[in-house]
Design a protein around this nucleic acid. Structure first.
Length: 786
DNA sequence: GAGTTTGAAACT
DNA sequence: CAGTTTCAAACTC
C-alpha cells in the first residue's frame, strides 16, 4: 500500500497503541472473551445450512473457530432466535437485543450489493439440530486445521488485527478447546430462556452473554473476511462462503453463478466501490461509519479509540469488524453499565412506527447512561437509535422485512408510506441500519438521514442513498426525500445550466454520488465534500493525494474524530428540515418535503453573493436563510433573513418573541421529562412537539441556536436561566460548545426525554433537534457555553 | 481550461 | 475569539 509521509506519520502515531493488544485484552470486549461460553454450534450449523442450502453434503468449513463461525448464525439469531426469544424481553430491555442486529447487516454490506446475502437472508429455514450437532463435534475437532485452511501465508495485516482481537489461530484453537471443555452450551433455546429470565427480571447474564458472544463471533467473521480480502483466492473462497457468497457455488439456488462470482469479486475487492453507483455510495458510507462506530464505541469513550486501533497499514481490516466491535462494546456496555430495570417497560412498547423505534433508541441510551457518553453524541445516539430501530422492526415483524437488508429492497419498499405502513417503517429502520451503520458524522448522518428522510418524507419514494446527489445538495450528498417537485426543479435547473455545469451535473447524476477535486486537503478536511459528507472518495473523484479511502480507514476515522472533537456538528447535515419538529401544530401529515420546510443548520455568512448563488449554502440547499444566518444583503429567494418569515415553515421562522417562547417551552419540556424520567419512565414519552410554544418571554431578539445539539439542551436544562439569551438576528456564528462532554456527563438523565426528542436526537444529522423551535433553544445553550 | 470569486474551514 | 489563511467549489471569461 502506498503511503505518503503523512499517512506514515498518522499511522506511526497509532501504531504504539495498536500494538497494544493489552488494550484489547483489558477492554470489556476482551473480558468477555475470557468468559466465553460455548458457541451455539447447533444454531450456527442450522443457519449456516440455511445459508448454504439444505442439501449441503457437509457442514461449511467456514466455521474455523468458535468465534468465527457465526456470521450467518448471528444474522438469523438476530432475526429469528433472538427476536423470538427476546420478543418479550425486548419490551423490557430492547437495548440489549437491539444492537446485536448490526453484525448481520454489516455482513450484508460485505457481500452484498448483488444481493447474494440477501438471498440468503430472505429465506431462513428451520434449524437442523442433528446436522448442527454433528457440526459442533466436527468443528471442535477441525478447528486447528480449519483455522489455517482459509488463509494464505503471509497475510499479515489483517491477521494481525485478528490476532489482536482474538489471538492467533493457534490460540483460537486452544480457546475453542477450552470452551468445548466448559461445555456450557447456550443454545437458542437457552437464549430464549435467558430472554424469558430477562423479561422476568431474574437474570440478565445469560442473554447478555449470548448477545455479546454473537457480536464477538461476528467480529471474527469480519476479520476473516478481511483476511480473505488480503489473502487471495483461497482465503477469499472461505470468506465468501462465510459472507454467504459461496452459497451459489455449492448449491443450486435461485442465484446464478455469475452473481456468485460477482459477489466473490466484490468480496475480494473489499466490498467497496463495487456494484452500482448508488450501491457504491452506500457502501462507502457504510464502511466509513461502521469503522467509526467501532472506534467510538468499542473503547467506551471517544478519547481512546487509538488504544485499540491497529496501524493504518492494517487498515484494511474491514470497517465491519470495527462496527461489530462497536456493537459488541455497546452491548457490553449496556449489559455492564445499565440496569435493564432502569428502563420502564411502559416506555418500551413495541414500536409501531419509526417514532416508536426512536423512542426505543432513546430508552436504549438511557439504559447506558452509566457508560461513558461519547463526545460524538450524534454518532452514539444514531448508532443506538438505528440499532434500536432496526430491532424494532425485527421485533415487529420477524417475518419478511427483517431480511430486507438490501438497498434494492429498500427501494422496493420505499414507496410505502412509513407513517402508516408498518412494512415501510421496517424498511426505514433497516435502511437506516444498512446505509448508516454509522452515526454521527454524516456518514452516519447520511445513513441515518437516509432512514430519516424516508421516515419523515414518508410519502416519498425511498431512494438509493446517493440518489439525492442529483439534488446537488451539499449538505446531503446522499440524502433522500426529495419530493417530486424538487426533482422537477432540479431538472429545470439542469436545463438552465451552462454546458460546463451540465457536464458536472451530469457527472453527478451518472455517478450518483459526490465527487471532489481536492488537491491539498488530502480529502481529510471538511473542504472535501466527500469527506464532509462522510463518504469515501471514489475513483471518479479528481482529488489528489487522497486519503479518504477505505484503505486509510484509520486515518480517516482519526481525522474525523479530531474534527468532531473541535466541532461535534462538523459532520452533521448542514440543512435540516424544520418540518421535523414538534411544534404544537405539527402533524405527520404535513408536508415534509418542501424546501421551505428546511433551513441551513448554522446559517450562511454570505457577504457578496447575496445568497443568490451557490456560494451560499442556504441557496445551494434551496432553503431560505434564517435567523441563524449572518448574511449581508440577503436576497435568498427561498427565504429572507432577518425578518421572520411567516411562510409555511413559520413554525420555525416564527416571530422573535415566539421563538423565545418556543425556546423556553422546549427547555421546560425537555427538562420536565428529563428529570421526571428518573422516577417515571413514562415521562419520557412526553413529546416535545407538544410543548407549548407559548410559555415564553417575548423579546424582540432572534435566537441563533444551532439546531442539532439536542443532547446539550437536555444537559443544559438544569440551568434554564443560561439557556435563553437574546441575540441579534445576524449575530456572528457561534462555534459549537467546547464543553459538550462535560455537559453530557453531567446529565445522564438528559437523554431520557421523550420520544420526540429521541427521534431528532438520534440522527446525528438534521433531526437532532428536539423540535424545530428547540433549535433556537439549543443555540442559545451553545452561545451560553461560549 | 484557466483564472477569479466566494465563503466555509482551518489556523493563528 | 477575532483576524487571517487555506481551501475547494462556484463562477466567469
Amino acid at each position: 500500500m502506498d503511503r505518503t509521509p503523512e499517512a506514515n506519520r498518522i499511522a506511526a502515531t497509532k501504531s504504539s497503541s495498536i500494538s497494544s493488544s493489552p488494550a484489547v485484552q483489558e477492554s470489556p470486549f476482551s473480558n468477555f472473551l475470557s468468559n466465553l461460553s460455548p458457541l451455539n454450534t447447533a444454531t450456527t450449523a442450522s443457519y449456516t445450512q440455511t445459508l448454504l442450502g439444505t442439501n449441503l453434503p457437509t457442514p461449511p468449513v467456514v466455521f474455523t473457530s468458535p468465534h468465527i463461525n457465526l456470521q450467518r448464525e448471528t444474522s438469523f439469531l438476530e432475526r429469528d432466535d433472538i427476536v423470538e426469544a427476546g420478543s418479550e424481553v425486548y419490551k423490557e430491555c430492547n437495548t440489549n437485543i437491539v444492537q446485536i442486529q448490526n453484525p448481520s447487516f454489516e455482513e450484508v454490506q460485505l457481500c452484498s450489493p448483488s444481493g447474494c446475502v440477501d438471498e440468503y437472508l430472505a429465506d431462513p429455514v428451520e434449524v437442523d439440530s442433528t446436522w448442527s450437532a454433528d457440526l459442533r463435534s466436527q468443528r471442535t475437532n477441525e478447528v486447528p486445521r480449519l483455522l489455517h485452511s482459509g488463509f494464505a501465508p503471509g497475510e499479515e495485516s489483517n491477521t494481525e488485527v485478528c490476532d489482536i482481537m482474538f489471538g492467533s489461530p493457534e490460540n483460537e484453537a486452544v480457546l475453542l478447546s477450552d470452551q468445548a471443555e466448559k461445555n456450557l452450551p447456550l443454545s437458542s433455546l437457552e437464549m430464549s430462556q435467558a430472554a424469558i429470565n430477562q423479561r422476568d427480571g431474574k437474570k440478565t447474564e445469560e442473554l447478555s452473554r449470548f448477545i455479546f458472544e454473537k457480536v464477538k463471533e461476528s467480529d471474527v467473521n469480519a476479520c476473516l473476511v478481511s483476511r480473505a480480502q488480503n489473502c487471495g483466492e483461497n482465503a477469499a473462497k472461505v470468506n465468501l462462503h462465510r459472507a454467504g457468497c459461496q452459497y451459489d457455488e455449492k448449491n443450486a439456488s435461485s442465484q446464478s453463478r455469475e452473481d456468485s462470482n460477482e459477489c466473490k469479486q466484490r468480496v475480494q475487492k473489499g466490498f467497496v466501490k463495487e456494484g452500482g453507483q448508488n450501491e457504491r455510495g452506500i457502501r462507502r458510507h457504510l464502511q466509513f461509519e461502521a469503522a467509526k462506530a467501532y472506534k467510538f464505541t468499542i473503547l467506551g469513550n471517544s478519547e481512546s479509540p487509538n488504544s485499540l486501533t491497529h496501524d493504518a497499514t492494517n487498515s484494511r481490516s474491514p470497517s465491519i469488524l470495527t462496527n461489530l466491535k462497536s456493537l459488541a462494546s455497546s452491548h457490553f456496555d449496556n449489559r455492564a453499565s445499565s440496569s435493564l430495570q432502569d428502563v420502564s417497560c411502559d416506555t418500551l412498547q413495541f414500536p409501531s412506527s419509526p417514532y416508536e423505534s426512536f423512542t426505543s433508541a432513546q430508552i436504549g441510551v438511557n439504559s447506558t447512561t452509566s457508560a461513558p457518553i461519547h463526545s460524538v453524541i450524534g454518532l452514539h445516539l444514531n448508532r443506538i437509535s438505528r440499532s434500536t430501530s432496526l430491532s424494532s422492526d425485527i421485533f415487529s415483524s420477524k417475518k419478511s422485512i427483517g431480511y430486507l437488508s438490501m438497498p434494492e429492497q429498500m427501494l422496493e419498499h420505499g414507496s410505502n408510506n412509513i407513517a402508516t405502513n408498518s412494512s415501510s417503517i421496517l424498511t426505514s429502520a433497516v435502511s437506516g441500519k444498512i446505509y448508516v451503520h454509522v452515526a454521527s458524522g454524516q456518514q452516519e448522518s447520511q445513513a441515518v438521514t437516509e432512514a430519516n428522510s424516508f421516515t419523515f418524507h414518508s410519502t416519498d419514494t425511498m431512494k438509493p442513498p446517493c440518489h439525492s446527489m442529483l439534488v446537488d445538495q451539499e449538505t446531503a450528498p446522499c440524502e433522500v426525500g426529495m419530493s417530486a417537485s424538487q426533482e422537477t426543479d432540479e431538472v429545470e435547473e439542469l436545463n438552465q445550466l451552462s454546458p460546463k455545469r451540465k457536464r458536472r451535473r451530469d457527472a453527478y447524476m451518472s455517478e450518483g454520488c459526490k465527487r471532489c477535486n481536492c488537491r491539498r486537503s488530502k480529502c481529510l478536511k471538511l473542504y472535501c465534500e466527500c469527506f464532509a459528507a462522510g463518504v469515501y472518495c471514489v475513483d471518479s473523484c479528481a482529488c489528489v493525494n487522497c486519503y479518504n479511502k477505505p484503505e486509510f480507514e484509520d486515518t480517516v476515522l482519526d481525522i474525523r474524530q479530531q474534527i468532531e472533537a473541535r466541532n461535534p456538528l462538523a459532520f452533521t447535515p448542514k440543512v435540516v428540515d424544520n418540518a421535523i419538529d414538534s411544534s404544537p401544530n405539527f402533524t405527520e401529515e404535513q408536508d415534509l418535503t418542501t424546501p421551505s420546510s428546511a433551513r441551513h443548520k448554522r446559517g450562511c455568512n454570505c457577504k457578496k453573493s447575496k445568497c443568490l448563488k451557490r456560494y451560499c449554502e442556504c441557496f445551494q440547499a434551496k432553503v431560505g436563510c434564517s435567523s441563524a444566518c449572518r448574511c449581508e444583503g440577503c436576497k435568498n429567494t427561498f427565504g429572507v433573513t432577518p425578518e421572520p418569515v411567516y411562510n409555511r415553515a413559520k413554525k420555525w421562522e416564527a416571530h422573535p418573541a415566539e421563538k423565545l417562547d418556543n425556546v423556553k417551552g422546549a427547555i421546560a419540556c425537555i427538562k420536565a421529562p428529563a428529570f421526571s424520567s428518573a422516577s417515571s419512565s413514562n415521562s419520557a414519552k412526553i413529546p416535545q412537539a407538544q410543548l407549548p410554544s407559548s410559555q415564553l418571554q417575548p423579546s424582540g431578539a432572534h435566537y441563533d441556536i444551532p439546531y442539532d445539539d439536542t443532547p446539550e439542551i437536555l444537559e443544559e436544562t438544569s440551568n434554564p436561566t443560561k439557556v435563553v439569551r437574546a441575540s441579534s438576528p445576524n449575530q456572528k456564528r457561534v462555534s459549537p460548545p467546547q464543553s459538550r462532554s462535560r455537559l453530557r456527563e453531567r446529565s445522564p438523565t438528559g437523554l431520557r426525554s421523550g420520544r420526540k426528542f429521541i427521534l431528532q436526537a438520534m440522527p446525528s444529522f438534521p433531526p437532532l433537534t428536539p423540535h424545530r423551535n428547540s433549535k433556537e433553544g439549543t443555540n442559545e445553550i451553545e452561545n451560553d457555553d461560549k
